[in-house]
């Protein structure tokens, strides 16, 4: 009997995970698209050295971070996949969303402080899992870089 309850619980969790997970992903992507358009004016580059532009009077470190969790359904899907091997497509969107969200938050900070571009952008990804095997539960993405521009802020802390 216990096994039946466990199975039912498992199926309910899968269904909840699928329902809420898909909904959350869709709405998150909507918001990402919208904000990416809004913040398109802030330019980001991975180059180490900015051009010697006289407009770049101020510089300041900016960053954005997010911790995001994968839903039960996708985690189980990844598990099944790990059994057979191949591309774990269910985690691709998780990482994509996290990186874009963190980048947007960094751009937001740059905009608030009055900068127009961010150079030497670096990504830092860490898994904040429960340490259960190789299972990824949730991940943190932190993006940082140096914002350059005329800057309305003081440019120093």
């Amino acid at each position: 009997m216990e096994a039946v309850y466990e199975l039912i619980l498992f199926l309910v969790l899968l269904a909840l995970g699928y329902g809420f997970g898909q909904w959350a992903e869709r709405s998150h992507y909507q918001s990402i698209f919208k904000r990416e358009k809004e913040l398109a004016g802030i330019l980001v580059f991975a180059e180490r050295l900015p051009p010697p532009d006289p407009a770049f009077k101020e510089s300041r470190l900016v960053g954005g971070s997010v911790v995001i969790s994968v839903d039960y359904f996708k985690r189980f899907l990844a598990l099944l996949r790990s059994f057979i091997g191949g591309r774990v497509s269910s985690y691709e969107s998780l990482l994509d969303r996290a990186r874009r969200e963190a980048l947007l938050r960094m751009k937001m900070e740059a905009q608030e402080k009055g900068f127009q571009s961010v150079f030497n952008v670096k990504f830092e990804t860490a898994s904040i899992s429960k340490g259960k095997g190789k299972n990824i539960g949730s991940i943190e993405v932190f993006v940082y870089g140096t914002a350059l521009g005329s800057g309305s802020g003081s440019g120093s802390q």
Partner: peptide
Amino acid sequence: KNIFGGELKGYTELL
């Protein structure tokens, strides 16, 4: 959140 997915705001702030 591990069931439903989504951002863990508490952790974001903590980090």
